[in-house]
């Protein structure tokens, strides 16, 4: 009796602790959403007024376009580079050192990385532009995306490539006909990961931004210089929502990949 009471109590304690941790993680996401539905504009123009106001701010609209443009570029380039790295790591069979070199940028502080890259661009005579912003973000996303793709490729057995070679397929044919169809979901996952990182990156990007803004650099400069207004809260809420949707998409891809492996 006491034993079962004790075990029930400890179960409750574990759930309570979990609830506190989850609350700490997710509750801070709600105030921006609440703020985005308040303010003078809402009283006049209805509950979605702050969201509609986003479209009326030309700088913000420009920032959204820049964010999307850079995001797409980063999401396309990063997984391709990661795939090349992962293929080289497998071919050389000496992955530790090189993998370490690829992952090292993860541990360099963002400001240092940004400033260093900005100086490097200046030495090369490259002016700040959307392209330099995209390049900085590719550097930032590359280690993450490489890890995602390496994980997927670790589950791919080289014997399939050997079987394809024995059936007359050269390296390129075996890659496109046999490996890619089995790992493309991982590459897609790497791309979505890069997209999320691109949407969220602020510090490195702001150092090489020049005259252009992304949503994040704009939010950051507004927050520092003027303070936030309800329109910006609406924008933040949209960003948080979009990120969660992308994460969910990645999880779905991961699950489908796992199911395909079991079936195979």
């Amino acid at each position: 009796m006491t034993r079962s009471l004790k075990s029930r109590l400890s179960t409750w304690a574990v759930w309570l602790f979990l609830a506190v941790v989850l609350g700490f993680l997710y509750l801070p996401l709600f105030p921006p959403a609440i703020h985005s539905l308040q303010g003078p504009a809402v009283q006049e123009g209805g509950i979605w007024a702050n969201y509609r106001a986003i479209a009326d701010d030309p700088i913000l609209v420009g920032g959204i376009w820049n964010t999307l443009l850079i995001g797409v570029l980063v999401a396309l380039v990063t997984p391709l580079l990661s795939l090349l790295i992962a293929q080289a790591l497998r071919a050389w069979k000496k992955p530790r050192l090189i993998l370490g070199l690829v992952l090292l940028p993860l541990f360099i502080p963002g400001v240092s990385m940004g400033v260093a890259t900005a100086l490097f661009f200046r030495i090369l005579g490259v002016d700040p532009s959307l392209l330099t912003m995209a390049m900085v973000q590719v550097l930032w996303a590359l280690p993450f995306s490489t890890l995602v793709i390496l994980t997927v490729m670790a589950n791919f057995d080289d014997v399939y490539l050997e079987a394809a070679h024995m059936l007359g397929a050269n390296r390129l044919q075996a890659f496109f006909e046999i490996e890619l169809p089995q790992v493309y979901q991982g590459i897609l996952g790497g791309g979505i990961f890069a997209l999320i990182l691109s949407f969220n990156e602020t510090i490195r990007t702001s150092i090489v931004q020049g005259g252009e803004n992304t949503v994040q650099t704009y939010l950051w400069s507004q927050y520092q210089q003027i303070g936030l207004n309800p329109t910006l809260f609406a924008l933040m809420t949209l960003l948080i929502g979009l990120t969660l949707v992308l994460v969910a998409l990645m999880a779905v891809l991961e699950m489908r990949q796992a199911r395909m492996r079991r079936a195979g």
Partner: peptide
């Protein structure tokens, strides 16, 4: 132009 059969079958799952 040799054929090979592997211990792990290596049937293409896709």
């Amino acid at each position: 132009q040799l054929g090979m059969v592997f211990q792990q079958y290596a049937i293409f799952p896709h």
